[in-house]
Every structure is written in C-alpha cells, then in structure tokens.
C-alpha cells in the first residue's frame, strides 16, 4: 500500500508538502524513544509516535521510514515541518492513539 492510500483510508492529515515521494509501505513501527526506533524500525515502515520534536525528522530520514504518523493530534511546530520538507520526510497526523492507529494500519495494509 502507498502512503497516499493509507492517508486516505485512515483519514490522516498531511502536515508536510503534498508533492511527496509516494513510497510503498511494507511495515509499521510504534515507538517514542528515538534510539529504540532508530535501531528497530525497518526501511519503508510507517512510524507511529507521539514524539513531535525536531529530532523525529532525522530519525525518520536516517532509519529510512516511509513516513511518520503522529498520533493523538499532538501539535507540531512549523520549524519541524520545514525541516521535514527539506529532508523529504512525510509527516501525517491522526487523532487516534498509537495502538488504534497500528490496528488500522494492519487492517488497511495487511501488515
């Protein structure tokens, strides 16, 4: 499943620019401790987190996550989104808690 299809199915709010690289999603990782995510998430994972500081951009980019989904409608500063746009990191948001989001990703994408 592509990022755009997941976003539409789960009604995710796209926070970064719309002309993103619509990558294929092959897995999902939920976590808020950055080094844990860095070491355990796999390339092309959807990364679900409540963490919203600027360091999520570097982690998503370097771990090669397909996109970041911020759960529970956590606010994100513009500076974080600007940096994400510069580094081609896609950030989406949902009002759902991380666990429910993970379930929805599983149902929608079969992963």
């Amino acid at each position: 499943m592509k990022i755009s299809e997941l976003a539409e199915t789960l009604q995710l709010e796209l926070l970064t620019e719309p002309d993103y690289d619509d990558r294929e999603i092959t897995g999902c990782y939920i976590g808020d401790l950055l080094s844990w995510v860095m070491g355990r998430a796999k390339p092309q994972d959807v990364w679900i987190t409540v963490m919203s500081n600027v360091n999520i951009v570097a982690v998503a980019s370097l771990a090669d996550a397909a996109c970041v989904v911020v759960s529970e409608d956590v606010p994100i500063e513009d500076a974080v989104l600007q940096k994400a746009n510069m580094q081609d990191v896609v950030i989406l948001r949902s009002p759902l808690p991380s666990y429910e989001l993970g379930l929805r990703v599983h149902e929608a994408a079969g992963i």
């Binding site: 808020d32 401790l33 950055l34 080094s35 844990w36 860095m38 070491g39 963490m51 500081n53 360091n55 999520i56």
Partner: peptide, 11 residues
Amino acid sequence: LGFGAGMGLPN
C-alpha cells in the same frame, strides 16, 4: 526529547 534510552552504543 526521546533520547537517553540507553541504545546509542548498542545500536
């Protein structure tokens, strides 16, 4: 900030 998980050197 999400750091300090004690995973830096192991990673």
